[in-house]
Nucleic acid binder design. Structure first.
Lengths: 152, 152
DNA sequence: TTTTTAGTTCTCCTTTTGCAGAACTAAAAA
DNA sequence: TTTTTAGTTCTGCAAAAGGAGAACTAAAAA
């Protein structure tokens, strides 16, 4: 099903995803669905290729689906589900991740509001960070839109 | 040592950090060092305020230091270490995180190189994503420099 | 020299995570 | 109606994470 090179790539992509906090099984499923020659794979193809149990496969797929990393399609006269990567959403996921970080500014503002006013330098450093996050929170969506315009 | 409001804030900041993959103890230490009226706290002040064991405190501080989230200063004629948040580095940490994501483009290019050429649409979607990451990888440092210029 | 201080490291325990395997389910096929 | 298919859910286990407490260490103080 997979060449040795492909297997290695699945592992490598898996590690990339594990570094994001996903479990090995989910991480490998995402890897497989990027690397496999077939874009759409069935439950059992995934299970067999990755040597997972049914439960692990089921859970991994459902987690990936809930995370909007995977979807499935069905075909007339076939009751299998065909799972595939939602690669088109990845750039939104990336941007969402960025924007989530920027929204930390709220928390740091709250910190500032409750801090003693004695520690001028430290408070200033926090304020600078808040400003930075707010700046990024405004500029990143612009950047995203610019890219969208450029590519359509 | 901490007001109730401050304690709650420490927990809230803690959760924020846990969502980044840090353990509760490290997460709370980082929270405490942002919220505490004193900017510099000793080992035992941290330990007592957070109700941690010595080992947990030691490990948490060393992890935070290795992550460049915390540093310590010493004072003449005093052998305690005074730990403090490296808040000034946070915006670099944020940018590093962003740039790390953008460097995923390499991995996806490798995927593309090994993929079958049959799946045109899917490969195109990957290529689009690679382009997007590369675009961000170029524009984000610019944005950062712009902000630096604006604020100095 | 002995004692104290400021932490570090080791051992142990509890909780959580990740997965296997088996039992189960609902729809379709025979 | 019974059987097969395509999964899901439950039970249980093994490994890893997180942290407590005690033993340890190195430098400073007495």
């Amino acid at each position: 099903m997979l060449s040795n090179e492909q297997k290695q790539l699945v592992e490598k992509i898996g590690l990339m995803h594990e570094s994001e906090g996903l479990s090995p099984a989910v991480a490998r499923v995402l890897g497989l669905l990027l690397v496999s020659d077939k874009v759409e794979l069935t439950f059992d193809e995934i299970r067999e290729t990755l040597n997972l149990s049914k439960s692990a496969t089921s859970n991994a797929l459902n987690i990936a689906i809930k995370l909007d990393r995977v979807e499935y399609v069905t075909k007339p006269g076939d009751r299998k589900r065909y799972f595939k990567s939602r690669i088109e959403l990845w750039r939104e996921h990336i941007m969402d991740g960025f924007c989530k970080k920027c929204s930390w500014s709220k928390m740091f503002e709250e910190v500032l509001k409750h801090r003693t006013k004695e520690t001028k330098d430290f408070n200033k450093a926090i304020k600078d960070f808040v400003n930075f996050l707010e700046y990024m929170g405004k500029e990143l969506p612009k950047l995203y839109k610019e890219w969208e315009n450029k590519t359509k």
